[in-house]
Each structure stands twice: as structure tokens, then as C-alpha cells.
Nucleic acid binder design. Sequence first.
DNA 1: ATAATCCCTCTAGTGACTAGAGGTTCAAGG
DNA 2: CCTTGAACCTCTAGTCACTAGAGGGATTAT
Lengths: 136, 136
Amino acid sequence: MYSIGELSKRCGVKIPTIRYYEQMGLLEVEERSEGNQRRYSADGLNRLSFIRHSRDLGFSIGDIRQLLELSRHRENPCKDAHDIAARHLRAVQQRIRKLKRLEQELKRISLCEAGTVADCAVIETLADHAQCETEH
Amino acid sequence: MYSIGELSKRCGVKIPTIRYYEQMGLLEVEERSEGNQRRYSADGLNRLSFIRHSRDLGFSIGDIRQLLELSRHRENPCKDAHDIAARHLRAVQQRIRKLKRLEQELKRISLCEAGTVADCAVIETLADHAQCETEH
DNA sequence: ATAATCCCTCTAGTGACTAGAGGTTCAAGG
DNA sequence: CCTTGAACCTCTAGTCACTAGAGGGATTAT
């Protein structure tokens, strides 16, 4: 049996965050001590690792709820899990594309060598969208 | 003089968002109609374009506040503006790197051809961080 | 027994909006 | 001049995934 603090250390998830996951219905507490403190089994630890890892990979709480539900039974089909992962992958790829366009624009702007605001490319570009070379 | 609705259309910024920018101190209203409705000059329109464009480039409200302050006087040195842009560029690049690692991991996971949860790579990988090939 | 550390619940704050309630003002047509 | 409908007003609360703090109780080691 682990206390919430031990779970926190072992999984690298802050204590209030564990309680937050509980509130969100991702991690139920099976047991409490006599003094009402949370006690977790190895199962809880695994579940929290799953959550933590999924969050690291950028899945939303809602996605994780579904993934946890799907993973409950070994004989479940895993197509839904694949769909969730694929959708997330597409979202990530889209964000990368957008950020790369941003990066180009910011790089270009940052080349400015001016000394004053009057002819500074940063300020000027921000004031005038027409100066941008790519969409964003 | 533009009403808030006109400003909204011209800049592509939703009306509640314009009011929000006002609350955040980015865009003061110079004038009100007799019936207390906001009226903007061409100056306000330019300012809102600047804000909109900066947001599109991912600058935070705080950054924008500073950039707007810096841009008020043409003779101001623009080193601070460069610093803000450079810092933002680094942040963007870091996010890109992180997202690319994520992308790799998600791609790898998504290759799974299993039919059930029992041997699905998505579920399995989420449950066990050790299976990941890169840091994230 | 006591001190130090851990844990409890509850509320509120973050950033950048978005949505809705409930009411007022404006502009155009008759 | 009057009415209608669209546009506007303020204020509150919700979003997401946490994070921080207050004010108190439980556990553990000495």
C-alpha cells in the first residue's frame, strides 16, 4: 500500500495533480486509512503511470478516460484506441506545421539590425500583416 | 469612427475578444457614443491589427503589452523588442522539438496491427514508459 | 509525549478566450 | 415620430489541466 506521497514520487506526478485526476474520474482510490488518508495498491500505481505517460504524449484527459476504459479488458477490440492515437497524431502534426511557419516568420523578423523603433522590423512586421511571407 | 462590430470584421477579431483585450489593458477606448457604445479611430484599428498579428505569431498578452509600449515612440531603442522576439523564437523551437519527438512516438505506436487490447501497442506503450524510444 | 512531516478538504488563480443572461441603444423604414 | 430588429452594453461563469494556499487533522520517529 502506497500513500499519495509515495505514489507521487514513484510516478513523478505532483500530489495535487493526483487528486485532480481522481476528481476527473481517472483514478479511483480503493482504500483509505483509518484517518481518511488515501492508500493505493500496485494497480493504482500502474494506472497512474498510464495516465502520466499518456499526458506526456499529449493526450487529453478525455482521451485518457477512453483509453483507460478500453484497456480494462484484454479481449476488447483496440480499433478505438488506434483511432484516438491517430487523431492525436494528426493534431500534433498540424501543430508542428503551424509552429514551423511561425518559426520562419520569427527568424526573418529577428534578423533586423535597426537601433530604434522607427525602422525596426519586429515592430513594423507586427503592425502590418502584409509584410509576412507565409500564412499563419 | 468605427463601432466595435466594424472593428471586429475589419481585424478578424471577435467582439468579446476585443473587450477582453481592453480589460487586459492592450486597447483603450478613446471615445464612447452618447449611449455608451465604444467608438474607435483608425488608431484603434491599427493597434488591434498589431495585437491580432502578434497573437497569431504566438506572443503572449504580456509580451504584446511590452511590444505596444515599446512601439509608442519611434525614437525608442528596439533592443527590448528584439529580445522579446528572440525569446519567443527559442520557445517556439523548443516546442517544435518536443512535438517532433512526440510525433515519432505516436507514429511508432500507431503502426500496431493488433485486433484486441491484449496485444495492442497503443495500450501497451502507454502502460509502460520503458517501451518508448525517445525522451519526452 | 512531542515534534516533524505528511495528509485532508475547499477555494481560488492561471491564460486567452468563449458563452450566456438580461438589459440598452442605434439605424432604417413606414 | 414610432417601431422593429440588429447591434451593443455589463456581468458572471465556463473552458483545460493543473497549481497554490488556507486552515486543519493524521502519521511516524524519537
